[in-house]
Write a protein that binds this DNA or RNA. Sequence first.
DNA 1: AAATATTTTTAGACTTATCTAAAAATATTT
DNA 2: AAATATTTTTAGATAAGTCTAAAAATATTT
Lengths: 223, 223
Amino acid sequence: MYSFTEENYLKAIYKLQEQSDANINTNAIALSVQTKAASVTDMVKKLSEKKLLKYEKYKGVELTAEGKRVAIETVRKHRLWETFLHTKLNFSWDTVHDIAEQLEHIQSQELVDKLDEFLGFPKHDPHGDPIPARDGEIQRGNFVQLNELKTGEEGVISGVVNHSSVFLKHLEKNELTLGKKIRIMEISEFDQSVQIWLNENSKMQLSNEVVRNILVKKGISYE
Amino acid sequence: MYSFTEENYLKAIYKLQEQSDANINTNAIALSVQTKAASVTDMVKKLSEKKLLKYEKYKGVELTAEGKRVAIETVRKHRLWETFLHTKLNFSWDTVHDIAEQLEHIQSQELVDKLDEFLGFPKHDPHGDPIPARDGEIQRGNFVQLNELKTGEEGVISGVVNHSSVFLKHLEKNELTLGKKIRIMEISEFDQSVQIWLNENSKMQLSNEVVRNILVKKGISYE
DNA sequence: AAATATTTTTAGACTTATCTAAAAATATTT
DNA sequence: AAATATTTTTAGATAAGTCTAAAAATATTT
Ligand SMILES: [Mn+2]
Ligand SMILES: [Mn+2]
Ligand SMILES: [Mn+2]
Ligand SMILES: [Mn+2]
């Protein structure tokens, strides 16, 4: 249906559109798909002719309904494959992304559906990101950044802001993985680093950089 | 490493090389990869420069060790994916090939190894074809065509010669799938059609066309 | 409002893989 | 051995996607 490259552009534009309401500009897309602005202009014209997005010279782009549909479908495939790699093939959460970047372009509706079923219709991928349903519906978890919790509050690690391999490896090493229950003990006034409570014999000091990049599902407060 | 297209050419040439010792000619390759002879000449020059095959104008081609290595690796990936699709995702054996044609080009040694392990290091794909080992070793089953069995001889269905979707569907419908035990009852002198015995209440008449395309592992003879 | 800086687009070229049509080489008939 | 047929290669185009360098448009400073 749509090429490898087209799907990548649509996905990139979709993600940029997610994190800001403004029209998406050429440079941002170029950065995102790792190419040059001139190439983006060419591709954007082509996608516009195919009615996958609206493009006005010097004004940036906006996905059409069909463009958004393709983008979300690609995200769905990406996250289902990441889940497969992690839960079935035992890839660690910092290694699944690159392979899923390839697998997400395999063309077969039936394959996606059967994979979904095989995985037990998962709601989230290994990074806590929601897996869009067949119809494109996205059930966003109501998560907050760990640095938004106050002293005494609890939460369960449910996602990450930073998806980089280094960060994911760092969390893994410290056993700060999805599902982990955390209680805030103390927030440093000096550097906003946070002391957390994991269990009777495990406390930990997390830098502000780290806590800002962890998403938690807020739990009950203790005092 | 090597492109989608390069892998497909190498695989096609490898398979042609398998079924005849002679040098592989341009037209055969063109037929195999569904393109035109002129395109084959272009690609063959390129693969020759990359030392994946030996090419002499008007004399056909022959894979080098490296070319063969890549071809077998691609076959390995293809058959592992077919096995995955069949045994884990419940695709029928006549639908796995087309999707595996895409999946076989995913680049990741680790993925192949983990998939192999996840599947329990299968020896054969859903069509009975041997899955090459990591080191390229291929353990060919010692199978014979069903029409080579004599009256009273037994065999277990272990593969097919014809891999077409229509043929596979036909076998499936008649429950002539891998592992099925068969005894030859009678071979018609008129049209070489064969009556087979499956169990107490199931006999069947198979055309010569069908029996020639079924591979069996020969069993003990009864009389 | 000019001048300057930044962003975006155009122009033209390159790569990979493909095609058609014509030319060259090889194989088969007569 | 010629004539004819078939196969293979070359020549020249095309499409998708990319690039650099220059031109045009827009944004920011002064
Ligand atoms: Mn990812
Ligand atoms: Mn993810
Ligand atoms: Mn196959
Ligand atoms: Mn097969």
